[in-house]
Amino acid sequence: MAGNTFPHWLTHHSATQPGRVALRHKQLGIWHEQRWKDLHSEVLQLVDALHKLGFGRGDTLVLLTHPRREALLLSIAAQWLGGIAAPLDPSLEDDMLALLLTHLAPAFVFAEGQQQVEQALASSQPGVQVIYAEARGLEGHARTALRQYRALLSGASAVPRAPVAEAEQSAFALYRVNGGRHVQVEHFRHDELLEEGRQLVVAERLGRHEEAFAARVFATSGHLRYLLSPWLTAGFTLNFPENILTRDADRRELGPTLVVGTRDTYQRLESLVRARLPLPDSLLGRFVTYALRPDASILQRFLGYWLVKRPLRDVIGFSRIRVPLLIGPALPQESLQFFRSLDIHIHTWDKVANWRTLPTTTIRQVPSPESVGDGIKRVS
């Protein structure tokens, strides 16, 4: 398609399937749906709001949050204006986050709540513009640079404007601190991310009817490549839990067809299932062993599915799972075999990372792919 970028694909789905559900998120125990047309309109409002704040081509929006729809929409709005989204993992140790924020010295930050807002204000440059999602604890905050997400929308208009983003530009930049306490960066262009998403869509036969679950932060290359990119390439529904603590209950309630997880994710889910297994020597334990035998007869498979496998899959919200993806380090064979016994066949999708160590002298500057060899560019 013309303009192979995240904003262009959002516009495409808004035009071709405006009434289908693009996002679903849980708030105060209630699931809320947002269709592609409405999602497109909200992103346009955010584009207008960011533009009024002075965000423009080449600027970076730092995201300090657990997975939530606001971070995704702000990322696309920043890219719409020719900028870059830089997700940081809020679960990092405080000193690591402080080092990253001090090094980046961002001018624009999206922070989830009070803790993340205070981290951003403490380690960013003076005058940083902070957009936050949760107002609890911030009602009496005197900082004029703080803007609540909903208030940001109320003062913006959804005026159509052509995206500034170009396919060869960076869409996302990931940052981390290595063992030597040096900051490293990895850039991801629009076209390369969307191509990798398209490859996954073709290989796994993903379609518009998929229900994907976003339970981890976007500060990993695997989630950018194999969750966000396929979402826009195929145009399926992306679901967000209410918060990181409710993710397992929310997944059980939804029963997604597509899940992207790391080794830690699947080992945690495995432990949840194993905790429900009866003692091996008990009568029920012997029945479970009988029902899950790999060389099971037709009767065993029938009983195993309805009486054992399906209930155990329900424990982790995998009742309808079709494409469980693993990114990062491999799972032990014992874990892979355990999931196979439940008819959950985990597929590994990952690429070698291309981290680049930044010069320690450029505390407020980082090189972009376009400027390597031609100087360095400020992260604003």
Rank of each mutant, 00 (worst) to 15 (best):
Y266G: 06
T265L: 02
R208G: 15
Q267F: 10
D250A: 08
N239D: 07
V273Y: 15
S271G: 08
Y266P: 05
S271E: 15
I244T: 07
H209K: 07
L224A: 10
S221M: 07
D264M: 05
F236K: 04
L245Y: 08
P256N: 07
V260I: 02
L238G: 00
P230F: 10
E210W: 09
T246Q: 12
L238P: 03
E211N: 00
G235R: 13
E270L: 13
V260Y: 01
V260W: 01
S229K: 10
S221E: 15
A249K: 11
Y266N: 02
H223D: 02
F236V: 08
L238K: 01
L206D: 12
Y226W: 12
L254Y: 13
S221W: 07
R268L: 07
L272I: 04
T233V: 12
V259P: 04
E242D: 10
R251D: 04
G207S: 11
A219R: 01
R251V: 04
S221D: 14
L227D: 03
L228S: 03
A212G: 13
R252K: 07
L245T: 04
R274L: 09
E211P: 00
R274I: 10
T220Y: 01
D248K: 09
N243S: 11
S221V: 09
E270R: 15
R263G: 03
R247T: 00
A275R: 15
A215P: 01
R274H: 02
S221K: 05
E270H: 10
R268H: 11
A249H: 15
R208H: 15
D250Q: 06
G235W: 14
E210L: 09
R225H: 09
A234G: 11
T265F: 13
R208A: 15
S271K: 12
L238N: 04
L227Y: 12
G255L: 15
V273F: 06
Q267R: 13
R208T: 09
E210K: 11
R274D: 06
V217H: 14
P241G: 05
Y226E: 04
F240G: 00
E210M: 08
T246M: 02
E270F: 02
L258N: 14
P230C: 12
G235I: 14
E253L: 03
T246D: 03
E253S: 04
F218L: 14
D264K: 15
Y266K: 07
G255Q: 08
N239I: 10
F213C: 05
G222D: 14
F218E: 02
F213N: 06
F218D: 00
R263V: 02
D250F: 08
L258M: 10
A212N: 08
A275F: 13
A219I: 01
E211M: 07
R225Y: 14
R268N: 07
A234H: 12
G222E: 09
A215Q: 06
E211Y: 05
Y266L: 10
E211R: 08
Y226F: 15
R216S: 13
R225S: 11
R216P: 01
R263Y: 00
V217P: 06
H223T: 02
T257S: 13
E253G: 00
R274E: 09
P230W: 11
T265C: 12
A234E: 09
